[in-house]
Design a binder for these strands. Structure first.
Lengths: 249, 249
DNA sequence: TCAACTACGTAAACACCGTTCACTGACCAG
DNA sequence: CTGGTCAGTGAACGGTGTTTACGTAGTTGA
């Protein structure tokens, strides 16, 4: 049944175990604790053996970051499954809240994926510079955002007028990515319902959502926020309201 | 003239040199390169000698973060000096742009101060939990924000109505800090001109400014932004516009 | 079946790292 | 001058990433 040879199966098994243990070390003791020797110890091999799987510790951390993105996307996708397909507003709430809760529950992973300079964690393939924000995660997030707009008439003040000239080209490229992402899931959608102004608004929303989550994870709000959740929710409500959605719970 | 003894002067001199070299290592080669041995090598002493000045490497990094905050505040203050005292809007632009440019020019320092979990960089004095955001920096930033509102009639939609119930207590505390900070600089100001809604708006503005800067530093915008500056400026314009300021260059 | 080849894992070594310890020697107060 | 304080030292311990040479089990072709 299994096409793979014995050696290939063992290798795949070991590789999974390596990442599993590395991930555990990251979550429980932070990035600095993700040591080649510590991983090897947990897996039951010696440190140099890890070089049969990764070029360096940096390379391993990079792969780890990819895994984290994939898992986060899967988790958000799962959260989305339990929600009415037609209630896009609820979907936005679910994805954003899910992202925030995940970040707060896994600050080390959040830091690695969303708050590392390319200096300390160079991009995987230097050649291909596709969508940033860890690919998989971005897909889920942007898909919901795109779908949100697909089935909703946008308010007039979301026209392309407020968009700075210099951003038109970049936003147009992003617009194409958004449309492609949404259409990949079967929803038909063309440029007319997703004007540059809307794309710009989505970007601004990401700035606010990311900003809030990062500030909370790093404890850098200008004052002690004893209960940040309603603050996050009210921000979401305001974002959705700005796109013409009626206020909801 | 100098009250200090010879030994005390030498010690102070060495301490300055230690931080200077540590800072240089951080800026040029990143946090991981800030090694006790590397610092000692640059200063011309041995690594164990550093323990006469700091409890541990962690402690040193903490002090370094404080220095960075102080210097950033001084830099922003200096930028502010060249600007018309009555043009608060221009002051906001200056401080925000200055913050962004500094962050982009010193990503390692930005990461240390504004994107470190308390896990990897525990707060200095565990007892006193004053204003977050590195004290000094917060002062400059919040002072301008407070002053902005002091001399300007706020639009009606900045009332306290939109503020979530659960945040009233926290915001009231922050309101007092803001008023105290602004009044420290001589500007008279009382609660009436700085309602909770305005305080809330300031906090939301910080979320957006921080979010944009961090996304730019970490390269986590959902698409490649070839020219982020107009995007930042347009965000500032929108923030100021939301507070009733006329659009300006 | 057996030889040749591949590749996973090893131990040893190198140069670093943070940190501790016992110790020296310059400074300084009395 | 005497005695104490303290910046700085060298040696050491256990840790790190990484390279090297080597054994050996798995695979493959004749």
């Amino acid at each position: 049944m299994t096409e793979a040879t014995r050696r290939e199966r063992l290798r795949a098994e070991t590789e999974r175990e390596i990442r599993r243990q590395a991930r555990a070390l990251l979550v429980e003791h932070g990035r600095d604790a993700v040591t080649l020797r510590a991983i090897a110890r947990e897996v039951g091999i010696t440190a140099p053996a890890l070089y049969r799987y990764y070029d360096s510790r940096e390379d391993l951390l990079r792969r780890l970051a990819e895994d984290i993105c994939t898992d986060l996307a899967a988790k958000l996708d799962a959260d989305l499954d339990g929600i009415d397909e037609d209630d896009v507003s609820a979907q936005v709430y679910a994805v954003c809240r899910g992202f925030r809760r995940w970040a707060l529950a896994h600050p080390q992973e959040f830091t690695l994926v969303f708050a590392s300079t390319e200096d300390t964690l160079p991009p995987c393939a230097p050649g291909e510079d596709r969508g940033q924000v860890g690919d998989q995660f971005g897909r889920v997030f942007l898909e919901v955002a795109g779908r949100l707009i697909a089935g909703h008439p946008l308010p007039d003040d979301l026209g392309d007028d407020d968009v700075p000239e210099e951003l038109h080209a970049d936003l147009a490229a992003f617009q194409k990515i958004l449309l492609a992402t949404v259409n990949d899931r079967g929803v038909e959608l063309d440029e007319d319902v997703l004007p540059l102004g809307a794309v710009y608004h989505i970007t601004q929303s990401w700035v606010r959502i990311y900003g809030h989550v990062a500030l909370e994870v790093f404890g850098r709000f200008p004052f002690a926020v004893s209960n940040p959740e309603p603050m996050f929710d009210s921000m979401l409500a305001q974002i959705l309201g700005g796109m013409g959605f009626p206020p909801r719970r």
